[in-house]
């Protein structure tokens, strides 16, 4: 149901925009301009068609999908759902992914702000060396430590828990780097001095002055952190074993090998369920996300 409304929404959305586009500049509409619009709309359709196929096929039975292609929805949605749910609890995967991603975003946001503030406003021995070392470590690809990471989790006895997926977020060099640059330009040291004279403790100053000022930058980074954690595949794949703990991406990989794969309709439905909520969320947030991406690259 959710899937259908989402499509309707975005379809009607595109239709609306199209009509806006075609009617508004009526005064002087040149042929090349029309061509460009046609091209853009064609590209938008290409972008969207895999999703459309997915949504349509999610409502069709296995037999129907095997026998041919159409864009007319079928009537097997409920059966597909039942088949899928009898093997895989996709909502549990959703819940797990959401839980992990939210905690990761919070941890990464808070501790990166803390570290960035520490680097920006205090003078202490080894500060520069540490900062440079951190920047160097930023260049290290995540997979490099994979095997050591796995052994570490084994020795700590935290395999098959969410700890190895959540706690490391407290140390995100890139976010620290970004926030440090940001707060150096936005927070004037005199503000901190004034607070100190008022007798505020260092942590209080951080929480009441620095955090609010950093908030826009933290929000920007949070979007990346959230998307990154939400899409993380290799770490949970290696660390988690019990199917009930699987995150959505791992569960999707799982779907391929499971008995659901015998039924294409259920398979499409499973993918659709993993995709549609993100699309809906994006409809609400698209402007903000786009701005964050722009900001993230320019500030670089």
């Amino acid at each position: 149901m959710i899937g259908k409304t989402a499509v309707d929404n975005s379809l009607s959305n595109s239709v609306q925009k199209k009509s806006v586009i075609e009617t508004k500049p009526k005064r002087k509409i040149s042929i090349p301009k029309l061509l460009i619009y046609a091209l853009l709309i064609a590209m938008a359709i290409v972008c969207f068609i895999p999703f459309l196929m997915m949504l349509v096929n999610a409502t069709r039975s296995n037999e129907a999908i095997l026998s041919g292609f159409t864009l007319i929805p079928g009537s097997a949605l409920v059966e597909n759902y039942q088949t899928m749910m009898s093997y895989i609890n996709i909502w549990a995967g959703f819940k797990n992914s959401l839980f992990i991603s939210v905690l990761v975003t919070l941890l990464s946001g808070y501790f990166s702000a803390l570290t960035a503030y520490g680097f920006a406003f205090y003078v202490f021995k080894g500060k520069n060396a540490m900062f440079v070392f951190m920047l160097v470590m930023m260049m290290v690809p995540g997979q490099l430590g994979l095997i050591g990471f796995y052994e570490l989790c084994k020795n700590l006895g935290i395999l098959d828990t969410y700890i190895p997926l959540i706690i490391p977020a407290a140390a995100s060099p890139f976010v620290v780097f970004f926030l440090r640059q940001y707060i150096l330009t936005t927070l004037h040291p005199s503000l901190i001095e004034a607070a100190r004279i008022d007798g505020a403790s260092e942590f209080k100053i951080f929480h009441t002055i620095a955090i609010p000022i950093m908030m826009p930058a933290i929000a920007t980074m949070s979007i990346f952190t959230f998307i990154g954690s939400w899409n993380n595949y290799i770490m949970p794949l290696v660390v988690l074993f019990s199917p009930e703990k699987f995150t959505l991406p791992v569960l999707m990989g799982f779907l391929k090998g499971s008995q659901v794969a015998q039924n294409l309709g259920s398979m499409y439905l499973g993918i659709a369920i993993s995709v549609v909520p993100i699309m809906v969320a994006f409809l609400f947030l698209s402007k903000y996300i786009v701005n964050s991406i722009s900001a993230g690259s320019i500030k670089e």
């Binding site: 959305n13 595109s14 925009k17 853009l40 590209m43 938008a44 972008c47 969207f48 895999p50 999703f51 997915m54 998307i227 939400w230 899409n231 595949y233 959505l248 991406p249 791992v250 999707m252 990989g253 779907l255 391929k256 398979m267 499409y268 993918i271 993993s274 995709v275 993100i278 699309m279 994006f282 698209s286 402007k287 996300i289 786009v290 991406i293």
Partner: peptide
């Protein structure tokens, strides 16, 4: 704004879902 959003959309989907779908 509209085209930007539509073009960006595929980037948001979990890559394992994308792989499975394709």
């Amino acid at each position: 704004a509209f085209f930007r959003s539509i073009f960006y959309l595929p980037n948001l989907i979990t890559i394992s879902s994308v792989a499975l779908l394709f």
